Computed example of a mutant assay.
Amino acid sequence: MQVRHDVLFHALHADGLLMLANCWDAGSARIVAATGAKALATSSAAVAWSHGFADGSTLPRDLLMASVKGIVRASSLPLTVDAEDGYSDDPAQAAALAGELIDAGVVGINIEDGNGTPELLADKIRAIRAVADARGVNLFINARADVYLRGIDASERVQETIRRAALYEAAGASGLFVPAMVAEDDIATVIKATRLPLNVMVRDGVPPLARLVQLGVRRLSAGSAISEAMFGCVDALSRQFLDSGKVNEAGLPRMGYGALNSLMAQ
Rank of each mutant, 00 (worst) to 15 (best):
R218T: 07
A170M: 08
N199I: 00
V200S: 04
L176H: 01
F177D: 05
A225D: 11
G232Q: 01
T194F: 01
G205E: 00
A222C: 10
F231Q: 12
E169H: 15
V206L: 12
L209V: 14
A171P: 04
L198T: 05
L220I: 00
C233M: 13
A210F: 14
V178H: 00
A229S: 12
R203I: 14
F177Q: 02
D204A: 13
D185F: 11
A188F: 08
R203F: 13
T194Q: 06
G175C: 12
L196A: 08
D185M: 15
S224F: 03
L198Y: 07
F177V: 06
I226Y: 02
S221N: 11
G205C: 03
M201H: 00
P207G: 08
A210P: 10
V202G: 12
M181E: 09
S224A: 14
F177P: 01
F231A: 10
V182T: 14
V178R: 03
D204L: 11
M230C: 15
V234D: 09
P197N: 04
P179R: 09
R219G: 09
L215M: 00
M201Q: 01
A170N: 10
V206K: 02
V202F: 13
A225M: 10
E228T: 13
R218G: 03
A180H: 11
A210C: 12
R195W: 10
G175T: 05
G205I: 10
D204Q: 14
G175A: 15
K192S: 13
R195A: 15
I187Y: 03
P208W: 02
E184I: 11
A210E: 14
R195T: 15
A188D: 06
Q214W: 09
V178N: 02
A210W: 12
A222N: 06
V213T: 13
E184Y: 07
E169D: 15
P179Q: 02
D235T: 14
M230E: 09
A193Q: 06
A173Q: 01
C233A: 15
A229N: 09
L215W: 08
L209I: 14
Y168N: 01
A171W: 03
R203A: 15
V200L: 05
G175F: 08
R218M: 09
T194G: 10
V190H: 03
L220C: 03
A236G: 11
R203Y: 14
I191Y: 00
K192L: 09
Y168D: 08
A222Y: 11
A180I: 09
F177H: 10
S221I: 07
V178F: 05
V213Y: 09
V217C: 01
P197C: 12
S227M: 13
V178L: 06
V190C: 07
G216C: 01
E184W: 11
M201Y: 00
L212G: 07
D204Y: 10
L196D: 06
V217A: 03
E169N: 10
G172F: 06
R211L: 00
E228W: 12
A171F: 00
D185Y: 13
A225E: 07
E184L: 05
G175R: 09
F231L: 14
A225V: 10
V200D: 04
L198V: 04
A180P: 05
G205Y: 00
C233K: 11
S221P: 05
L220Q: 07
M230P: 05
L220T: 07
P208H: 12
L196V: 06
G216K: 09
K192Q: 11
R218Y: 03
A210Y: 12
S174G: 11
C233T: 15
V202Y: 13
